[in-house]
Design a protein around this nucleic acid. Structure first.
Length: 937
RNA sequence: GGGCGGUUAGCUCAGCGGUUAGAGCAUCCGGUUUACACCCGGAAGGUCCUCCGUUCGAAUCGGAGAUCGCCCA
C-alpha cells in the first residue's frame, strides 16, 4: 500500500488539524495520579485585551519546549494557562471604544460601565487562547483561569484581608504618580521615563521687603502656583542672609518662606529651588520636614483647580503657557534654557504623569522584600541568567512601598467599608458571591464596630492588576484551599518570563508566595524554584516590539507564510539567554528549509519502502531485485517493538554507518537535554539541526542507500530497521521545538493501537549500547577521505558525473582495512571509479603530472586525471597553506620551548600541543614534498 | 547620576581561559544525482571595537576609553 506523502511540506493543514486534535482530546491535561515527579509552570497570563505578538510566541515556544521535553521524560507535567484582567489596560481600551461614541465612563456609571467591559471581554477577549492553541502551546486548558473569576477573586480577598490584619496595608495621603487621562494613581513601575526636548524656565521671585530676587529654575512652571517655600542649602554662603526671610510668590502674591534644607543641590541652577510639596516627590518630603502647607493646584483630569486662582479651569499645559507669558509680562523670567529631560508618562496611555498627593492604599514592602532577599540569597530560587539575580536583589534592597489602589472600575474592589465616623471596616471574610455572573465580596460588614453606625460604604477603589497577578502561581492551584493541585504542583518548578516584568511581577510573586502560602519551610513557599528570564524580541532599531507603535509583527501571519514549526525553530535557535533577539527574515527562511528537509527525509524512507515492496511483489528484475526476494513490510521494519531494539547488527561490511549514527544519536540526545536543562535553547537547536541535516541526511542516508535495496535480505532488513528507528528517535528529539511536523510524521510510522501522540512518547535518552567511539573515529577518517576527494574534483573542475580513479596512501594496517571494508560507500560518495589503497607515502610512486593531492596527517589522496591541472593555481594554494602552517608551527614551537609554559600548564595541554605540532609538521612536510614535485614536473 | 548588556565573516548570531575562532544566510565555482533547487558538492571570507593589565596562555578574566542599546533614579 503506497503511503501518500506530498512532495512539498505544507504546514497549514497539518498544523490546524493537530492543534485542534490536541485541544479536543485534552491531550495535555495533567493527571495528578500519574507517575513521575511533578513539573509545573504557570503561564504568564497575557492581557485579556491582547492578541498574540512575536514576544509572546518567543516566550511560549520556550515554555512549550521545556514542558514538552519534561512531559516526554516522564514528569507529571502541568502548564497552567490563563488570562489577566489587566485593569488599567482593559479599561483604557474600552474607554477608547466609548470615546468613539462620545461617551465617558462617568456617563454610564460604574455598574453599566463594568457590564460593558464584561461584554467586551466576552466578545474580544480570549483571542489569545485561540491563537495559543493554534500555535501548539501544550497547556492544560482544563485548568484555565482568569484573574477576575470568582475563585481568584476569593484568593485576592483572602490575601488582602490577611495583609490588612497584619498591618501591612495602610491608607493615607501620599505623593503618588497620577495619570490625568486614566484618572487614577499608578505605581512607580507604571511610569515610564521618556527623554524629550523641553525647557528650563528660570523664574525671578521677589524677596519681600527688598528689591532683590531669588532665581529658581523649573521645567513645570504651572506648579509654581502651589509653591509654599523656596529652599536653599544651609551652608550656601550666597544665601545665608535670606534664610528665614520670605519671597512674594508671583501671580499669587502669597508670601512664602525661604527655608534651608540639605536636600538642595548647590550646584544645580542658582542653588535656590522652589518647593511645591503637592506636586513633587522630593518637595513633598521637604514639606513634611518643614511643616509646609500642601497646595494641590490641579484636578483629577489635569486641569487647574480653584487653588490656581485665575488659572482655574485651564488645562495644565495651557496654564503653563499663560503663566509663562504673564511672568514674562511682569519681567519675572530670568531666562529660558532648552534642555532634554526625562518626562514620566503613563505606561498605558502615554499621558504625562503628574506627581500628586492623594489618598491611596499602600503595602508595606520592606519585611516581604527582606524575606524574598533571604530566599534568593539562600538559593531557594535559581535565577537565570545570573546577572539578573543582582538586579532583583538590588531592587529588593531599595524597595518602596507599593501603591496598590487604583481609581478604576475594572478590577478587584477593595474589601474595606468606610463608616461616617471615619472607621474602616474590612469584609468579614474572603467569601464571594456571584451577582450577574460575576463575583463580589459576600461577607459585607453592616455595622461599624467603633461607633455602631450602620451607614457603611465600600471603598470605591480597585486593586492594582499586579496585586492579583502576584498570587497567580498559587491562586490558580486553588489557594487558599488546600487542594490536591496545590499540594502536587506548588511550588511550581519554573517561571519563564521576560526580564521587563521582573519587578512588576516576578519579584512580587516571590514576596507574596513566601508570605502567604502555607509550607513549613521557605523552600516550600517560594512560587517557583527556578526563574528563567528570557530575551525580548526587538525591532532592528532595538525598540521593544509593541503593537501600539506598530512594530509588533503578527505571528499568525508569519505562521501562514512559513509554518509554526519553522517560526518556533527560528525563535528557539536565536534564544541565547541574556541577548535580545532581532527578527531576521533569513533565519525564518532557514528554519522553513529545515522543516522541509525533515519532511523530505521522512518522505524518502516511505517512498522507497513503497518501491521495495512493489519490487518484491512483482519480482521485477529491472528494479535490480532478485525474484526470490521476500517482501519487506513496514510493520516488519518499523513496528514499535522493532524500533525499541535498534540498532540491529548489519551483516557483512555495511555496519559502520549504523553504529556511527546511533553513537551520534546518543551524543546529541545528551547535548539536547543538557542544553534544555540550562535554558540554552539555541544550543539544543543547533545540535539537533546539525545531527539531522548533516549526520542523518547528508551522511547516514546517503551511505546506507544501497543497503536498503540490497539483495541480501538480512542486510536490507537490518538497514531498514535501523534507519526507521533512527528517524523515530530524531522525530522525538525534534518534537519539543517542532511539534506539528514531528507529530504528523510520527503517525505515519506504525504505532500501537491507541497511540495518541508523539508528545506522550519518550524523549531519546543516550543508551550506553549506542555509544561507539571506535565508530566515531573510523567514520571521521572516511568522511575526511570523501571530502578530500570531492575537494580535488571541484578543484580540477571535474564533471560531477564523471567517475575517476584515485590513489590513497595511508599509514597503518588498521586504516587500510577500514577503507577497504567501506570501499563501496567511499567510492560512491566521492564519485570515484576506483580507489587504490597503498601503505606509505606517495613521493616515489608519483608520476609525471600527478594530478592533485590532498594530504592530512593520516593520509594522502591523489587524483590523477588525463588533462593538465592548473599548476600555478595549485602551487599558489599550497604556498598559502604552507604559510599558514609555518606560522602555526612556529607559535607552537615557541610555546613548547618556553619553560614557563611547560612547567606551569597542565600536562594534558602540553601533551596535546606536542601531538598537534607533530601532525602539523607532518602535514607541512607533505606540502613541501608536493611543491618540490610540482616544481620538478 | 547609578546599574546592566552588546560591539566576532557582507548580514543575523554562536563561542566566554588552552585545536589552524564557528553556524545559518548572502557571495563565488560546479551540478536537472528521480527524498528535498526550501536541494547537492566545493570554495572564499575575520587586527574577535581600542588601549592597558592579570596569566605559561586572553575573543574569552580585570581596568580604562569609544560606541550602540536597555533598566533604575
Amino acid at each position: 500500500m503506497p503511503r501518500e506523502i506530498p512532495k512539498a511540506y505544507e504546514p497549514q493543514e497539518i498544523e490546524e488539524r493537530w492543534a485542534k486534535a490536541w485541544f479536543d482530546e485534552k491531550l495535555f491535561r495533567a493527571e495528578n495520579s500519574a507517575d513521575g515527579p511533578p513539573f509545573s509552570i504557570a503561564l504568564p497570563p497575557p492581557n485579556v485585551t491582547g492578541s498574540i505578538h512575536v514576544g509572546h510566541l518567543l516566550e511560549h515556544t520556550q515554555i512549550d519546549m521545556l514542558v514538552r521535553w519534561h512531559r516526554m521524560r516522564g514528569n507529571r507535567t502541568l502548564w497552567l494557562p490563563g488570562m489577566d484582567h489587566a485593569g488599567i489596560g482593559t479599561q483604557y481600551v474600552v474607554e477608547r471604544e466609548l470615546a468613539k461614541q462620545n461617551l465617558r465612563r462617568q456617563d454610564l456609571g460604574r455598574e453599566e460601565f463594568e457590564r460593558r467591559v464584561w461584554q467586551w471581554k466576552g466578545e474580544s477577549g480570549g483571542q489569545i487562547k485561540g491563537q495559543m492553541i493554534r500555535l501548539g502551546a501544550s497547556c492544560d486548558w482544563t485548568r484555565e483561569h482568569f484573574t477576575l473569576e470568582p475563585k481568584l477573586y476569593r484568593a485576592v480577598l483572602e490575601a488582602f484581608l490577611r495583609l490588612y490584619r497584619e498591618g501591612l496595608l495602610y491608607r493615607g495621603p501620599y505623593m503618588v504618580n497620577w495619570c490625568p487621562r486614566c484618572e487614577t494613581a499608578i505605581s512607580d513601575l507604571e511610569v515610564v521615563h521618556i527623554e524629550q526636548p523641553g525647557k528650563l524656565w528660570h523664574l525671578r521671585y521677589p524677596v519681600s521687603g527688598s528689591r532683590e530676587f531669588l532665581i529658581v529654575a523649573t521645567t513645570r512652571p504651572e506648579t509654581m502656583l502651589g509653591d509654599t517655600a523656596v529652599a536653599v542649602h544651609p551652608d550656601d554662603e550666597r544665601y545665608q542672609r535670606y534664610i528665614g526671610k520670605s519671597v512674594v510668590l508671583p501671580l499669587m502674591n502669597r508670601e512664602i518662606p525661604i527655608i534651608a534644607d540639605t536636600y538642595v543641590d548647590r550646584e544645580f541652577g542658582t542653588g535656590a529651588v522652589k518647593i511645591t510639596p503637592a506636586h513633587d516627590p522630593n518637595d513633598f518630603q521637604i514639606g513634611k520636614r518643614h511643616n509646609l502647607p500642601e497646595i494641590d493646584v490641579m484636578t483629577d483630569d489635569g486641569h487647574m483647580n480653584a487653588a490656581a486662582g485665575k488659572y482655574a479651569g485651564s488645562d495644565r499645559f495651557d496654564a503653563r503657557k499663560r503663566i509663562v507669558s504673564d511672568l514674562e509680562a511682569l519681567g519675572l523670567i530670568d531666562k529660558i534654557e532648552n534642555i532634554t529631560h526625562a518626562v514620566g508618562v503613563c505606561d498605558r496611555c502615554k499621558s504625562e504623569a503628574e506627581p500628586r498627593i492623594s489618598i491611596q492604599w499602600f503595602m508595606t514592602m520592606k519585611p516581604l522584600a527582606d524575606a524574598a532577599t533571604k530566599a534568593v540569597l539562600g538559593g531557594l530560587i535559581e535565577v537565570v541568567p545570573e546577572n539578573q539575580r543582582t538586579v532583583l536583589l538590588n531592587w529588593y534592597a531599595n524597595i518602596h512601598d507599593w501603591c496598590i489602589s487604583r481609581q478604576l472600575w475594572w478590577g478587584h474592589r477593595i474589601p474595606i467599608w468606610h463608616c461616617e465616623c471615619g472607621e474602616m471596616v474590612p469584609a468579614l471574610n474572603s467569601s464571594v458571591e456571584i451577582v450577574d455572573g460575576h463575583a463580589r465580596a459576600a461577607a459585607i460588614p453592616v455595622k461599624c464596630p467603633k461607633c455602631g453606625g450602620g451607614k457603611l460604604t465600600q471603598d470605591p477603589d480597585v486593586l492594582d492588576t499586579w496585586f492579583s497577578s502576584s498570587l497567580w502561581p498559587f491562586s490558580t492551584l486553588g489557594w487558599p484551599d488546600d487542594t490536591p493541585d496545590l499540594r502536587t504542583y506548588y511550588p511550581t518548578s519554573l517561571l519563564v518570563s521576560g526580564y521587563d516584568i521582573l519587578f512588576l511581577w516576578d519579584s512580587r510573586m516571590i514576596m507574596m508566595g513566601l508570605h502567604l502560602t502555607k509550607g513549613a519551610a521557605p523552600k516550600d513557599r517560594v512560587p517557583f524554584r527556578r526563574l528563567y528570564l528570557h530575551s525580548l524580541v526587538r525591532t532592528a532599531e532595538g525598540a521593544k516590539m509593541s503593537k501600539t507603535k506598530g512594530t509588533g509583527v503578527d505571528p499568525l501571519q508569519l505562521t501562514q507564510q512559513y509554518g509554526t514549526d519553522a517560526l518556533r525553530y527560528m525563535l528557539a535557535s536565536m534564544a541565547a539567554p541574556g541577548t535580545d533577539i532581532i527578527l531576521s527574515e533569513d533565519r525564518i527562511l532557514g528554519a522553513r528549509a529545515f522543516a522541509n528537509k525533515i519532511w523530505n527525509a521522512a518522505r524518502f524512507l516511505f517512498v522507497n519502502l513503497d518501491k521495495v515492496e512493489a519490487a518484491g511483489l512483482t519480482s521485477d528484475p529491472a528494479a535490480g531485485l532478485p525474484a526470490a526476494r521476500e517482501i519487506l513490510t513496514l510493520d516488519e521494519l518499523a513496528a514499535p517493538e522493532i524500533r525499541a531494539n535498534a540498532p540491529y547488527p548489519v551483516p557483512g561490511e555495511g555496519a559502520l554507518a549504523h553504529r556511527w549514527i546511533y553513537s551520534r544519536l546518543a551524543a546529541v540526545s545528551q547535548q539536547a537535554s543538557s542544553a534544555l536543562d540550562g535554558f540554552r535553547f539555541h544550543e539544543a537547536c543547533q545540535s539537533i539541526y546539525q545531527f539531522f541535516w548533516g549526520d542523518f541526511c547528508d551522511w547516514y542516508i546517503e551511505w546506507v542507500k544501497p543497503q536498503l535495496t540490497s539483495s541480501d535480505r538480512q542486510v536490507a532488513l537490518a538497514a531498514w530497521r535501523n534507519i526507521f528507528a533512527a528517524l523515530d528517535a530524531a522525530l522525538r528529539l525534534l518534537h519539543p521545538v517542532m511539534p506539528f511536523l514531528t507529530e504528523e510524521l510520527w503517525h505515519r510510522l506504525p504505532q500501537p493501537a491507541g497511540a495518541r501522540s508523539i508528545a506522550l512518547e519518550k524523549f531519546p535518552e543516550p543508551q550506553p549500547r549506542w555509544i561507539d567511539t571506535a565508530a566515531d573515529d573510523s567514520m571521521a577518517i572516511l568522511q575526511e577521505i570523501v571530502v578530500a576527494a570531492r575537494n580535488i574534483r571541484a578543484e580540477m573542475k571535474l564533471d560531477p558525473r564523471k567517475k575517476v580513479a584515485a590513489d590513497l596512501f595511508v599509514t597503518g594496517p588498521m586504516r587500510r582495512t577500514l577503507v577497504e571494508e567501506n570501499m563501496d560507500a567511499v567510492l560512491r560518495l566521492a564519485s570515484l571509479s576506483e580507489l587504490r589503497v597503498t601503505s606509505g607515502h606517495p613521493g616515489a610512486a608519483s608520476e609525471k603530472n600527478g594530478g592533485i593531492v590532498r594530504s592530512t596527517a593520516a593520509f594522502d589522496l591523489r587524483i590523477a586525471y588525463g588533462e593538465a591541472i592548473d599548476k600555478q593555481a595549485e602551487i599558489a594554494r599550497l604556498k598559502k597553506k604552507v604559510e599558514e602552517l609555518e606560522k602555526d608551527i612556529k607559535s607552537k614551537q615557541a610555546r613548547l620551548a618556553d619553560q614557563n609554559f611547560t612547567s606551569k600548564a597542565p600536562e594534558k595541554i602540553v601533551d596535546a600541543l606536542r601531538a598537534t605540532l607533530e601532525e602539523r609538521q607532518l602535514e607541512l612536510k607533505k606540502l613541501h614534498d608536493r611543491l618540490k614535485q610540482l616544481d620538478r614536473d
